[in-house]
Each structure stands twice: as structure tokens, then as C-alpha cells.
């Protein structure tokens, strides 16, 4: 379904509910649109269930833009069933130093979930996550789904300063803060990998898959992690 948004965007919807099959499909459509090198294309913003296509309204009107995109959507590969290889995305491993000193909410989460810190870490690293959206801040990837047993609500009062690299959980989502910023997610560890820089931009893309790998303090520091 394609709908006009304001005077310079079209929103393509892939479904109503969050579904791990959608990011791959959305990323594949992004690639197909980019391949056309449309001179009026300004930006593509994929998110959980949608792709926002931003165009130059002086170069094309809403009918032309929609007509150009329609055939791509109609010929999308089967939307039900297993993803094709092209839709699989990359698998990215992110090292995390899980500890009380880098994960100040581990103790609270243990109390909240009735699990030990070690069990929380094991469940967080057991899952392969899907990158559903990039937003909030440059390079901030919203990933899911976190195992229900370690899903925790956001903090009632957000922290004014979350250190760069902090790994957090909010309900069934997890993310790494690319930069120090205010934030309300429950922090369980810290990742030494740069998630955003001005040359390579965001490390994560919608459609990528991510696994977290537990590392020790020495390795965290050796990889450039900051305490």
C-alpha cells in the first residue's frame, strides 16, 4: 500500500505489526529503488513495517512519483514464506563487556526478572536480532526481539547522560547508544565498536542481523572500549 505523506513523501506499508520477516523485504525494496537512480529521489527511511520515500516535489508530483514506484512494489518477491538470500542482510557481531561497571541496571533487572545477571547475559547473547529501524540518534539501531524473560520497561526517569557504547534493553528491543546522550533504556553492558562515524555513517542498516558476543574487560579495553 502506498500513501501520500505531505507534499514530498510516500509511505509504503508492508504490514501492521512488527514482524521479523519485514526488514529484509523493506531493505530489498530500498535496494531496488536505489538501483533506479531516480533523479528526484531525496531520501529513503525504512522502519519496522514501512518505507518512507522522500522525493523532490518540484521535480515530480505525487502521481508521477507513485506511478514510478508502483511496479516495483507489485513485483516484490513473495511476501510470505522464508526470506531469499538477497533479503537475509548481513550478520554483524557486536562484542559487549557485560558487567556491573558497564551495565548499571543489571542488578535491578535481575531483581525485576528473577534471573541472575549471568542468565540475563546468556539470554541476551543467545538471540540473533533483526535491525528494525535506525533513528533517535545517528547510527542508533532498534533491534529485536529480546527474549520475553529479560524484557524490561524503560526507566521511569531517563538518565541525562548514557555513556557511548552502552547496550540497553527497552521492552523487547535492544540497542547500542552510538554516542553519549540522554536515554531511558536499561543498561546491561558496553560495546567497544564504533556504531557511527562521519565517514562510514551508520554501521547498522535496516535488514541486518546482529549477535552480541560477551567479552571480558581486557578485550573490551584492547578494542578501544572506554570505562
Amino acid at each position: 500500500m502506498i500513501q501520500a505523506v505531505g507534499e514530498d513523501a510516500l509511505l509504503i506499508s508492508f504490514g501492521d505489526a512488527i514482524d521479523s520477516a519485514l526488514p529484509g523485504q523493506i531493505a530489498a525494496l530500498c535496494q531496488r529503488i536505489e538501483a533506479l537512480e531516480l533523479p528526484w529521489l531525496v531520501d529513503l527511511v525504512p522502519s519496522y513495517t514501512t518505507l518512507l520515500v522522500i522525493y523532490d516535489p518540484v521535480a515530480v508530483n505525487v502521481f508521477e512519483a507513485r506511478a514510478r514506484l508502483r511496479p516495483l512494489i507489485d513485483s516484490q518477491p513473495e511476501t510470505i514464506g522464508p526470506a531469499t538470500n538477497a533479503q537475509q542482510g548481513r550478520l554483524i557481531e557486536l562484542p559487549v563487556y557485560y558487567s556491573q561497571e558497564t551495565g548499571p541496571d543489571l542488578a535491578w533487572m535481575a531483581e525485576h526478572t528473577g534471573l541472575s545477571s549471568q542468565q540475563i547475559i546468556e539470554r541476551h547473547t543467545a538471540e540473533t536480532y533483526q535491525v528494525y529501524a535506525i533513528g533517535f540518534a545517528p547510527g542508533f539501531g532498534f533491534m529485536g526481539q529480546v527474549d520475553p524473560s529479560i524484557a524490561c520497561p524503560r526507566k521511569d526517569t531517563p538518565r541525562t547522560q548514557v555513556p557511548a557504547g552502552s547496550v540497553g534493553i527497552a521492552n523487547r528491543q535492544t540497542a547500542v547508544y552510538p554516542k553519549a546522550s540522554p536515554g531511558g533504556w536499561q543498561l546491561i553492558g558496553r560495546c567497544p565498536t564504533q556504531l557511527f562515524d562521519e565517514v562510514n555513517l551508520s554501521l547498522l542498516r535496516v535488514g541486518d542481523k546482529v549477535r552480541f558476543v560477551a567479552i571480558g574487560k581486557d578485550e573490551f579495553l584492547a578494542q578501544g572500549g572506554q570505562l
Binding site: 505523506v5 505531505g6 507534499e7 514530498d8 513523501a9 509511505l11 501492521d16 505489526a17 512488527i18 527511511v45 525504512p46 522502519s47 519496522y48 513495517t49 514501512t50 518505507l51 518512507l52 522522500i54 529501524a133 533513528g135 532498534f142
Partner: peptide, 10 residues
Amino acid sequence: IVSEGIIPGA
């Protein structure tokens, strides 16, 4: 709603 792309003016 489920978070989606937004544009200036929204």
C-alpha cells in the same frame, strides 16, 4: 503507532 519515517512539517 509502530515508529515510521517522519518528515519536517509533520
